[in-house]
Design a protein around this nucleic acid. Structure first.
Lengths: 157, 157
DNA sequence: TTATTACTTAGTAAAACACTAGGAATTTAA
DNA sequence: TTAAATTCCTAGTGTTTTACTAAGTAATAA
């Protein structure tokens, strides 16, 4: 399995899409600006996501991207697999010699572990993440309500 | 976070060490031959593993490597972190602008997810993997039951 | 018809990967 | 004391992956 920054870009973009795609399609320009990812790189990522039907593109002015299906039906594993090419590691699928079982033992143990991690992130959907963002207040600077901002800054100064 | 083939090599090598290191140190030559990993690459990986005290080297003839501590006390996360440099992704730790919170929202959501995956593989120890390998009969050519690691962290398979 | 968007392809600098090469330091055994 | 085995260290290298720039083509709304 592979889980790298590329997968993170894809998850981030899909998350942006899920968050902002309620009232219409979201353009890659928007995501690019929102998330600080180059437009052309996003286009490449979305080519892969589209191939796996995770997003649906609409051309022309007012166009952009929709989620390919409900956010509940898109797992993190789906997204990462789409862009990262989930590789099978063991090359000894009945072909290679097994070195007295040693080599294959570790291979199958890794396979099992790999499968476990996969099944773990397959259980987490895009909707789960969005829900979690709505419940607790995430954010960099913990934005204070505008009303209290004046008083705080007034006291500080 | 990153989880690539490099981490897999490290886990595989550590697994080999755990399996064969009962009666004395295991040489990198052995692991190299067993697992099909180049000796010099193993040396680089083990330099990182040694820096994190996950292995202990013994020089000279009859030397080799021991696990740095009990296999129960070494998690998969430990191993992967040692060689893969668990990177923090969000670059907006109070510094960068938050684009109205959008950018940071997705960043913190990714952080949460990343942390979950980390905590998941932190729960799995080298000893867990070895135990699983002893219980069920792993091997190349034998058809495996669906998942032999099912109960490892209470996750339903 | 024009602007806007998705889509496509080619190229590229930088990093990571996995390895080769050549040694130095340490220790065991002949 | 010498030779061999092993860890340990550093430098270099071809390949792949990243993340990006550039330059288009195709479809569509206004």
């Amino acid at each position: 399995m592979r889980l790298s920054t590329k997968g993170r870009y894809a998850v981030t973009a899909m998350l942006d899409l899920a968050l902002n795609g309620q009232d219409g399609p979201v353009t890659l320009s928007d995501i690019s600006e929102n998330q600080g990812i180059s437009l052309s790189y996003l286009e490449q990522l979305f080519a892969a996501l589209r191939a796996k039907k995770l997003v649906r593109g609409v051309r022309g002015p007012g166009g952009g991207y929709f989620l390919g299906r409900d956010a509940d039906e898109i797992s993190i594993a789906n997204i990462i697999c789409a862009v990262d090419e989930w590789v099978e590691f063991t090359r000894c699928q009945g072909k290679e010699d097994c070195r007295g079982g040693q080599r294959c033992l570790t291979h199958s143990l890794w396979d099992d572990l790999s499968r476990q991690i996969y099944e773990f992130i397959e259980e987490i959907s895009l909707a789960d993440l969005v829900r979690r963002g709505q419940e607790s207040n995430h954010g960099c600077h913990k934005e204070k309500p505008a009303s209290t901002l004046g008083e705080i800054s007034g006291q500080a100064a």
